[in-house]
Nucleic acid binder design. Structure first.
Lengths: 338, 338
DNA sequence: GTGAAAGCGCTAACAT
DNA sequence: ATGTTAGCGCTTTCAC
């Protein structure tokens, strides 16, 4: 491990003082240095293969140029899409993102937050829907700017970026209604997620408005397996009356598709299924999944934008940004059959 | 932004010297401190909400406890799986992973590498298959331990962790052969990826062994769109003779499924398709994709293990770890039809 | 335009 | 068992 080249070695080679090297290499202060000196320093740095030590710089400037992103499950394809949006926006600004996948584990989430704070992140984007006020409170104390994604901002005072769940659910229910469905099951996610609660509430209202008979069942996690299990339970009941399933999430919908297949039923001939998020590959499933398209990458971009604002302002005004969504109709929904 | 609580404020409150605080708070040196003092320091730290500054610590210890992971495309679901393996192994060891998604962009990759080196990562796992010796050379100079995933190690002297491509291709070709296929098309990935080359070579050999007629076509990227385009081209040709497609990657296979559908053909009745990687959701596609299961999470774990070794040793002996793979047969492959 | 000096927060020798 | 001292590599006043 070749020892690190420091700024003073560059200074020695260039025949100047270390501070001059610092000034010459920093674009912001370069103008103050003689042009010839800049060139000399630059070539010295290059020939020595100098790489600035960001930790030392950060210690001095109190800026890490790092932001933390906490997500519940990297394996759920909606998050890579959001992350791509975040990184695409922040990378060009010189920020590196520190990713923490907490795997749906709340204890881990607390750990991740403190680990990121220790690492002096300049800001935090949190996309884990769990509302655990103790965590958020601890965070507030640290003073690190935070933006929430897909998560209740009620108590927090942080900005929130999210898709328009109400609108999405309404569009999907409307679509099912038009296809003749009058008896729908909603597979809701864990009610500790604000998103799950919001969608469950939205579908309640939407069905009431249209006098659709609604039954809500609850999955314990937003996974294919849970969707499968819950749907299996539904289909095993003797007197099935529903003709369509609206899942809170594509992953749950996918589980529903599996269960329907296992029971020898055909989607959408026997049962229609509609998802939420329009995750990558939703189109490729069997059958292609009707879903509410949420602009995931835009959500990431918007979250990054809000975070930059919060960092500049010292503390963000708790703003709620709701992005419009749209229904994508594919093969998994069709006319109701009694 | 409440100013950071430092170790000396804790020291003052606890009535001890800063270095004692440091010793008391560090598990490795705690034993050397009086038990009562430890308690006093701990409660002082807690009451002040003290959070150690990892940058300052790293500056002193020359350890960042951070490792960098460079991947070509987070959006490809095989990478989250690998990352999960890496983080699962490294997190408990106190390491944080800095993720760089370079989006298949080689220039960006260079940027990412130097950005990670600047950030003093203690090690690097690189999963971008491109062999660009200039990058690797620059890296070698920095002295940072590196482990490669799914990437040619030929020149580099770094350890490499990968699935057994030869074995996987052989199993898949064998399966197709048993189904009566004697005329196969291989959709290869860009030949700048060592993985793509390796699989193309492997299928060449496998088909020669079994006197299967092989035609290889090349995609320009490992994406669904490319797979679709290439397959469309194949199907538009007047005299189609092949009965099966072996793709270098599930994403390419998925594109092939799309194209086949667009041409009004049925998979596997008209054409069989087999993929590689067994990516998440491969089972859910339409039809469920026969594929070679690569133990993605294990690859991540193994890469992390190798990296830890390399960090300990100062420099890893360039080891090649090949993990066994297996064929998962689903609905996309069936008997050959002339 | 450049040098000198101080210090970010922490830990590791060394001293007591 | 604890305090003293120095310094990791960098930037930023303040002089000149």
């Amino acid at each position: 491990m070749s020892r690190q080249v420091t700024i003073s070695e560059v200074a020695k080679l260039a025949g100047v003082h270390p501070s001059t090297v610092s000034r010459a290499l920093n674009p912001a202060t370069r103008s103050v240095v003689n042009e010839k000196t800049v060139r000399r320093v630059k070539s010295a740095a290059e020939s020595l293969n100098y790489v600035p030590n960001i930790m030392a710089r950060g210690l001095r400037t109190r800026l890490s140029m790092t932001i933390g992103v906490i997500i519940p499950d990297l394996t759920n394809p909606i998050f890579p899409a959001i992350i791509r949006g975040i990184e695409g926006h922040l990378g060009p600004l010189g920020y590196t993102t520190l990713l923490a996948d907490v795997d749906g584990d709340t204890a881990l989430e607390g750990h991740a937050i403190s680990s990121l704070v220790q690492r002096q992140v300049d800001g935090l984007i949190i996309a884990t829907g769990v509302e655990q006020s103790s965590l958020v409170k601890a965070l507030a104390q640290s003073g690190v700017p935070v933006v929430l994604v897909n998560r209740g901002a009620s108590e927090t005072g942080y900005s929130l970026v999210t898709g328009d769940d109400e609108m999405g659910i309404r569009a999907s229910v409307n679509h099912l209604h038009q296809l003749g469905h009058r008896d729908i099951v909603h597979i809701a996610g864990p009610q500790s997620f604000s998103t799950s609660r919001g969608r469950a509430d939205a579908i309640r209202r939407a069905c009431d408005d249209r006098s659709i008979n609604l039954k809500t069942v609850y999955a314990e996690a937003l996974t294919v397996e849970q969707g499968e299990m819950v749907t299996n339970r539904l289909l095993t009941e003797s007197n099935r009356s529903f003709t369509a399933i609206q899942a809170s999430t594509d992953l749950l919908a996918l589980g529903a598709l599996r269960a329907i297949r296992q029971h020898g039923l055909i989607c959408p001939d026997d049962i229609s299924v509609s998802g939420f998020n329009d995750m990558p590959f939703a189109e490729e499933f069997s059958p292609g999944l009707t879903s509410v398209r949420v602009p995931l990458e835009e959500i990431g971009i918007e979250a990054a934008t809000q975070l930059m604002r919060a960092i500049k302002d010292g503390r963000g005004s708790s703003l709620v940004v709701t992005l419009p969504v749209s229904l994508v109709i594919r093969a998994s929904t069709g006319p109701a059959t009694i």
